[in-house]
Design a protein around this nucleic acid. Structure first.
Length: 906
RNA sequence: GGGCGAUUGGCUCAGUCGGUUAGAGCGCACGGUUCACAUCCGUGAGGUCACUGGUUCGAAUCCAGUAUCGCCCACCA
């Protein structure tokens, strides 16, 4: 039983404890220090791997806190609890960060070349990796570091290759030319999810295309069709003009040719229902290679699709003077020239939605590219089936609607990226264009179509979307595709905890790929956390400068406070504001717990030797306060269990906080102080009291451990333990639910109320807080023994001395004097009279005011209660228990009103 | 254009199955220097639960609608 330092200093407490856990080898479910029960099912959380691009932010700390809470709870419950940590190589995000660093050095991707660039990247992530691992330890993550995984390690690479080959063989991965989202800044295609629709005001230009004279083949100067466009530069790629088939204005023109300016190409006027006659001029230019809708139209009409933009979004291959110009430069030049030609009819401001790159904020250009796609429809169907059948549930439930909507309208997933940092696509092409996909580490031996040797084949230069490897995470981390022990033991996993902002990016992909590749749902529960915002409700971001470094917070207030603060009062799926106030609240709580434990440790009766093994209190010597404490601990444990099983972690902290502060400290310790020092208490009783304090505190430390692991571990180490307890709380057993004692709860509850009412009466009468005042109390006979047992404590807590007990209300009334203060508790069963030291011949004005207020309140409630009971439908339709409760309430209120009236002389 | 969420005391938020008097922290007012804790203790004030209608014996809670704010999804040039 080491002495606890007087002051609570989180920094000192936390540093030593993490090392003790590590040394004891308790994090791994199969570690030396594990106390897991092998007959129980395992509990697995695979950590959402943070991007290796920098340091962790508060959101990560929050997620880790929630995940670790669940893991610690499961571990204490005796499950083999596996918390598998990891890191994500974050392909495009990492390149974006590194490119920024390189730019400052005057270098870029092209100047370095692929090999040197990747070397730089490896060096970069080697440094960030260490920072991130330290951060996680500081937060207290009880993760199995021996199983740490990385999305770019060899085993992930194997999983990626195998997954892709299987999808390819199952016709779920295919290569085709299609319109993709091109980011000119990142020089890669991105998926639909990475395109952010941004409302902006642009310009809608109306441009005249001249009709071509069928006879001469020349444009007619005065006859034309006016089209509307927001992107004039795409004129260079036009291969048709479309109108609605039923539009009478243009019916005669359908089938005619018009001349596209600049490229001076003659293209047909076609009729297609996709055109909205009400928009713009009702005529649309069609640029199949640079607009999704036009692409579809082009396919329907067999139009050519010339590409006019290069990788950097400059105009290319049009044979015009605009070649080489940036897209916006070309736009301006073309608009100017159209105006000179007199073919610019009008330009009006136009509200529209522009797609921008999630990463670089560049305007996305749709472009035709040959890329790999994942066929998502069949995968999505299985994912939907899993959630609809309840085999995987999503919390909070409302996200199932979002999930349904997205998966029902899903489009194929472009997984090729023209980047370098990531898993290379394991596809090889032979000179004849045959495709060979191979998961072999060294690639294929030969073209699988024509048998050409490997030397003649070239591998696809592209890499996978980073979310492809992330999508394999729940099983690639456990050894898949190999049939490993871990895979057999821990897959499928238990809970996937992550932010709701990546439900599509990540959760849906894990579900789709997991079902297809392993045949099982990768997790039973998806728990979606809300986002952490700053105190003003703003999303935290580096550009806003309002990000909070978790390490700074931990240094100042401790990881326990941080964890408590992000869990307390938060509900799944709802954002929360985070600031110093919440942190202070949490730290104060840790401090309270610290001091309470210090008191208990120091209050050990002399008859119990230091270092004694923990005993249960001797039931024969328990007083009512002790029975109350134990009963409340049982109630709290049961409530915590229920909250835990419902993933209501904010409720867990609320329950334990209240039990510790408002019950254990405010009343339990105060009652105990008196009993432990009162000369009337026997040695046996003292021991029973102290062992009760120890027992209940032990329970609360266990309940709180998953939330505040460090301080609870430290304090638990200072308490006596039971014979079968392990060295460390982290592997101690979760408390069982003890028996409730209804009588103790209601009796102590009434006496607590009595003390409160006495204090209230004294404060309202503005009597000096420190004075001991003669107090006369009447309590019902049934409450007598409890009252007597707690009499010394009530005296002290109410500063009521001498404290006389009157056996009947009449006796109390007989000895009361007009200047006394009156206290009526609850239903009026307990009454007290307080005699001011100075003595008054009549009731003071303040006292009268207070009683009048109480009377008015009581009368209000009484009439409400009577109204309810006067209602026949209430009496006949409400459950009997509710009606009975209402009757009892009415009787209590009536009694209270009578007594207050008596006292006020009415 | 669809979908979702939020709206509860001055502020930030809980409130599970509809059921006695809607809770907490902070802030505020008043009072506390004795032996766990001033990172503390005691007392108090402060809410027509956004609005309108409905269901029900009973609604912060369920239903419909309205308003404000926020988020997600969405290929009208």
């Amino acid at each position: 039983m080491p002495d606890l330092p007087k002051a609570y200093t989180p920094h000192e407490v936390e540093g030593a404890i993490y090392d003790r856990w590590l040394a004891a080898d308790v994090f791994a479910p199969d570690g030396k220090g594990s106390t897991a029960d092998p007959t129980l099912p395992p509990f697995t959380i695979i950590q959402p791997p943070p991007n290796i691009t920098g340091s962790l932010h508060l959101g990560h700390a929050q997620r880790t806190a929630v995940e670790d809470l669940m893991i610690r709870h499961a571990r204490m419950r005796g499950h083999r609890a596996l918390f598998l940590p990891g890191l994500d190589h974050a392909s495009i995000a990492a390149q974006f960060v590194l490119d920024g660093i390189l730019a400052k050095e005057g270098e870029d991707r092209q100047s370095l070349g692929r090999e040197r660039y990747l070397e730089r990247m490896r060096a970069f992530v080697a440094t960030t990796r260490e920072v991130m691992l330290v951060q996680q330890r500081r937060v207290g993550a009880s993760a199995d570091w021996g199983r740490l995984r990385y999305t770019m390690d060899d085993r992930s690479a194997k999983a990626v290759r195998t997954a892709f080959e299987r999808l390819y063989r199952a016709d779920l991965a295919y290569r085709t030319e299609a319109l993709v989202n091109w980011c000119p800044g990142c020089r890669t295609s991105v998926s639909d999810l990475e395109v952010i629709a941004t409302p902006e005001t642009g310009t809608l230009w109306s441009v005249r295309y001249h009709l071509v004279d069928a006879a001469t083949g020349r444009p007619e100067p005065d006859a034309g069709i006016v089209v509307a466009t927001t992107r004039p530069e795409t004129i260079l790629g036009d291969t048709a003009v479309a109108v609605h088939p039923d539009d009478p204005r243009y019916a005669a023109l359908v089938g005619r040719l018009v001349r596209v300016p600049f490229v001076e190409r003659d293209v047909p006027v076609i009729a297609d229902p996709v055109v909205d006659p009400a928009f713009g001029t009702g005529a649309v230019k069609i640029t199949p290679a640079h607009d999704p809708q036009d692409y579809a139209t082009g396919l329907r009409h067999g139009l050519a699709a010339p590409t006019i933009l290069g990788d950097d979004a400059s105009v290319t291959g049009t044979g015009t003077r605009f070649d080489g110009m940036d897209r916006y430069e070309a736009r301006a030049a073309m608009v100017a020239e159209l105006e000179t030609r007199g073919d610019l009819v009008v330009a009006i401001p136009h509200d529209m939605v522009i797609g921008r790159c999630q990463r670089s904020n560049d305007v996305i250009e749709p472009r035709l590219k040959t890329q790999w796609f994942i066929r998502t429809t069949p995968l999505a169907e299985r994912a939907l089936e899993a959630t609809r059948a309840g085999r995987t549930r999503i919390l909070p439930e409302r996200f199932e609607k979002t999930w349904e909507h997205w998966l029902t309208n899903i489009r194929d997933w472009n997984v090729s990226r023209q980047l370098w940092w990531g898993h290379r696509i394991p596809a090889w092409y032979c000179p004849d264009g045959h495709v060979t996909v191979s998961s072999a580490e060294t690639g294929p031996d030969a073209c699988e179509v024509c048998g050409r040797p490997a030397a003649a084949l070239t591998q696809d230069p592209d890499i996978f979307d980073t979310w492809f490897s992330s999508g394999l995470w729940p099983f690639s981390t456990l050894g898949w595709p190999d049939d490993t022990d871990d895979y057999r033991a821990y897959y499928p996993t238990s809970v996937m905890e992550t932010g709701y902002d990546i439900i599509f990016f990540w959760v849906a992909r894990m579900m789709m790929l997991g079902l297809e590749l392993t045949g099982r749902e990768p997790f039973h529960t998806v728990y979606l956390s809300g986002l952490i915002r700053d105190p003003a409700g703003q999303k935290m971001s580096k550009t806003k400068g309002n990000v909070v470094d978790p390490l700074g917070v931990i240094d100042e207030s401790g990881a326990d406070a941080l964890r408590f603060a992000v869990i307390h009062g938060a509900t799944p799926g709802n954002d929360q504001r985070f600031g110093p106030v919440k942190l202070e609240h949490a730290r104060n709580f840790a401090n309270k717990l610290w001091n309470a434990t210090r008191y208990v440790v120091g209050a050990r009766p002399a008859t119990i030797p230091e270092g004694a093994e923990r005993r249960l209190p001797d039931e024969r010597h328990l007083g009512p306060a002790e029975r109350w404490l134990r009963s409340r601990a049982a109630a709290t444990t049961a409530a915590v269990d229920e909250a835990m099983s419902g993933f209501a972690f904010g409720e867990v902290t609320r329950l334990v906080y209240e039990a510790i502060w408002d019950e254990y400290c405010d009343w339990g310790l105060e009652f105990a102080k008196v009993r432990l020092t009162d000369p009337g208490t026997s040695a046996d009783e003292r021991e029973a009291t102290w062992w009760t304090l120890v027992e209940v505190l032990d329970t609360y430390l266990r309940l709180l451990h998953p939330v505040m692991p460090f301080v609870t571990e430290a304090l638990w180490g200072g308490l006596p333990h039971r014979a079968g307890d392990p060295e460390l709380l982290i592997v101690a057993r979760w408390p069982g639910v003890g028996e409730r004692d209804a009588a103790a709860e209601s009796e102590i509850g009434a006496l607590i109320e009595l003390v409160g009412e006495i204090r209230n009466a004294r404060a309202s009468a503005k009597l000096p807080a420190g004075d001991w005042l003669e107090t006369l109390v009447h309590v019902p006979v049934a409450l007598g023994p409890t009252f007597e047992a707690l009499r010394p404590a009530i005296e002290r807590l109410a500063r009521a001395r001498p404290l006389e007990r009157e056996l009947t209300p009449e006796a109390l009334a007989a000895v009361s004097r007009p200047g006394d203060l009156t206290v009526i508790v609850g239903g009026g069963e307990i009454e007290a009279t307080i005699r001011p030291a100075t003595g008054h011949a009549e009731m003071g004005a303040l006292e009268r005011e207070r009683l009048e207020r109480e009377l008015a309140d009581a009368e209000g409630w009484l009439s409400a209660a009577r109204d309810r009971l006067a209602n026949d439908s209430f009496v006949s339709r409400a459950p009997a228990a509710v009606v009975e409760g209402a009757r009892a309430r009415e009787a209590e209120l009536a009694d209270q009103v009578t007594r207050l009236r008596d006292r006020l002389g009415r």
